Computed example of a mutant assay.
Amino acid sequence: MNEQVSIRCADGARIAGWWHRARATPRATVVVAPGAAAEARFYMPFCEHLAETGHDALVFDFRSVGESDIDRRRRRECGFSTWIEQDYPAVLDHAHANARHGPMIVIGHSAGGWMAGVQPAADRIDALIGVAALSGHWRHMARPHRYAHWLAWHALVPASCRMFGVWPGMIGFRRNMGPRFGLEFSRWARRRDFVFSEPAFDANAWRFRGHLHLFQIADDPWGTKAAVADFGGRFPNASGCVVETIHKDADGGEPIGHFGVFRKSKARTLWPRLVGAIDTARDAARRH
Results as ranks from 00 to 15, higher is better:
171 I>C: 15
172 G>H: 03
172 G>F: 03
172 G>Q: 05
173 F>H: 10
174 R>H: 12
178 G>C: 05
182 G>L: 05
184 E>D: 10
184 E>T: 02
185 F>K: 01
185 F>S: 00
187 R>T: 13
189 A>K: 03
190 R>N: 07
192 R>S: 12
192 R>Y: 12
193 D>R: 15
193 D>Q: 14
193 D>T: 12
194 F>K: 05
196 F>M: 08
197 S>D: 15
197 S>W: 00
197 S>I: 02
199 P>Q: 08
199 P>C: 13
200 A>F: 01
202 D>V: 02
205 A>Q: 03
205 A>N: 00
205 A>R: 00
206 W>T: 05
206 W>Y: 07
207 R>C: 09
209 R>G: 12
210 G>V: 09
210 G>H: 08
211 H>E: 08
211 H>M: 05
213 H>S: 08
213 H>A: 11
214 L>F: 10
215 F>I: 08
216 Q>P: 01
216 Q>A: 13
217 I>R: 06
218 A>L: 07
220 D>Y: 05
221 P>T: 13
222 W>A: 09
223 G>W: 00
223 G>A: 15
223 G>Y: 03
224 T>S: 09
225 K>E: 14
225 K>F: 09
226 A>I: 04
228 V>Y: 03
229 A>P: 01
231 F>H: 12
231 F>Y: 15
232 G>R: 04
232 G>N: 07
232 G>C: 11
233 G>W: 06
234 R>T: 02
236 P>V: 06
237 N>T: 04
238 A>R: 04
239 S>C: 10
239 S>G: 14
240 G>F: 02
240 G>R: 14
241 C>F: 05
244 E>V: 10
244 E>Y: 09
244 E>S: 15
248 K>N: 15
249 D>Q: 15
250 A>V: 11
250 A>F: 14
252 G>S: 10
253 G>T: 09
253 G>E: 13
254 E>P: 01
254 E>L: 12
254 E>V: 10
254 E>I: 09
255 P>I: 07
255 P>E: 12
255 P>R: 13
257 G>R: 09
257 G>T: 11
258 H>R: 14
259 F>E: 12
261 V>E: 02
261 V>K: 00
263 R>C: 07
265 S>M: 07
266 K>S: 06
266 K>V: 02
268 R>V: 10
270 L>K: 02
